[in-house]
């Protein structure tokens, strides 16, 4: 479904702040894969997601989604294939617009936007039902401005928006990192529910090794701009935090894989 081949990305090339964030990343996701991505700060996790989403062009390599080479496509054109939830709860929604208006925007992802009504009456009814599944009481607040919602509510809403038009690929960029533990657990639970219901091909970055092991059918670890560990199936199911740490030390050739670095 997703094929990342030899992707390189250097920021601020030629300056003192030069930073090569991706050093030839290769990663292939099969249809229905739910891949969790872990790695320390600066390992290139978010850079990889942004490269796939097309936030900026990559220096080298190709990105293919469901057989379409999207390497040269701009961010808004790629949005046709991709649903995204950001780390910052403020980033995924339009604060000054209503809940139903945000959903209506998401419902038109990948479609032309003309002079038809921005939101139809029938849509509102379906959004009410959809919001009820979140169990956050948002179905009663359809016309509230999104800016009035809590971080957790906004992430849950963003998740709905990202999957309203079933995406070929769902990108979750540490989408629970900014939430308190209880809310984070709830949003993760919702994520699991939505991903498994639609069998969405998903790439989820997390700082939390336990979450990375508990969720998905495959786990990828990044280090210094490369994918260094890739486990799936039975091996992934039996994986423990200790084993993962040991693997990491082995690959990175150092013992900096302490809890501080990886558990955030």
């Amino acid at each position: 479904m997703l094929e990342v081949k030899g992707v390189w990305k250097t920021f601020n090339a030629g300056t003192v702040n030069e930073k090569t964030a991706l050093r030839g990343v290769d990663l292939t996701l099969n249809d229905g894969d739910f891949v969790t991505v872990i790695g320390g700060n600066g390992a290139g996790k978010s850079t990889l997601l942004n490269a796939v989403a097309g936030v900026w062009p990559v220096d080298q390599g190709t990105i293919t989604i469901d057989g379409t080479d999207v390497t040269k496509l701009s961010e808004h054109k790629r949005a046709k294939y991709i649903g995204r939830v950001f780390q910052d709860p403020m980033m995924g929604t339009a604060a000054s617009m209503q809940i139903d208006e945000n959903l209506a925007l998401a419902a038109r992802r990948g479609k032309g936007r003309g002079l038809r009504a921005g939101i139809a009456a029938a849509e509102r009814r379906s959004y009410r039902e959809l919001l009820a599944t979140l169990d956050l009481g948002l179905e009663e607040r359809l016309t509230s401005k999104v800016g009035l919602l809590s971080g957790g509510q906004r992430q849950a809403l963003t998740l709905l928006m990202a999957t309203l038009q079933k995406p070929k690929l769902l990108l979750l960029d540490e989408h629970t990192a900014a939430l308190d533990p209880k809310t984070a657990a709830k949003v993760l639970e919702t994520t699991e529910k939505i991903v498994s219901a639609d069998r969405l091909t998903t790439l989820m970055i997390t700082h939390n090794m336990r979450d990375a092991i508990a969720h998905g059918n495959r786990l990828v670890m990044m280090y210094d701009g490369r994918v260094v560990i890739d486990v799936s199936g039975e091996e992934k199911r039996k994986l423990t935090v200790e084993e993962l740490l040991a693997k990491f030390s082995q690959v990175s050739g150092s013992d900096e894989a302490d809890d501080k670095l990886l558990l955030g």
């Binding site: 950001f86 980033m91 995924g92 339009a94 604060a95 000054s96």
Partner: peptide
Amino acid sequence: SSLRATGSNSAMARAQG
């Protein structure tokens, strides 16, 4: 609506195509 979304949050607007 897409114009309003652009002013409210351009990153979100691009993510929604």
